[in-house]
Amino acid sequence: MDKSYSIITDSSAETEEFGRKLAQLIEIPSLILLKGDLGTGKTLITKAAASVFGYQGEVTSPTFNLVQEYSGEKEIIHMDLYRLDRTEELLEIGFEDYLNREAVIFIEWPELALPLLPADFIFINLEKISAEKRKITVRGEGEKSRLLIERLNKEC
């Protein structure tokens, strides 16, 4: 059985707190997939994590132009694949180039990326329990995600 970490957050403030904790515990570069329905907190977590990396500017869901880059102390790349239909389109938008960066990459609606991913990523599933309540599950592949899950389990 794969290792995982789960937490129930009772408010968006707590979901944000999870995002900050995540950012403090991951190693760079990191690839973080965020799966969850509309309004479950994918962008919120990205924003909270970005603030830990020293980016204080606006973080919005890049559904609009697929990719946004934020530069704080660390390079942050924020993708949203909602508008894509085919995995091949990911190559056209330079997915390979982004993977090859010393950056923290957040991907919302990551399903289409699954065939292209290296064996080294963190997968976060967000489920809506009630209006404010979320169940957050962290899984993943590779050494980095194993370490992260270990740290999350130890800390919380």
Partner: peptide, 10 residues
């Protein structure tokens, strides 16, 4: 192009 022989995590 598409990297070869990656695992599909689908």
């Amino acid at each position: 192009k598409k990297p070869q022989a990656e695992i599909n995590w689908q």
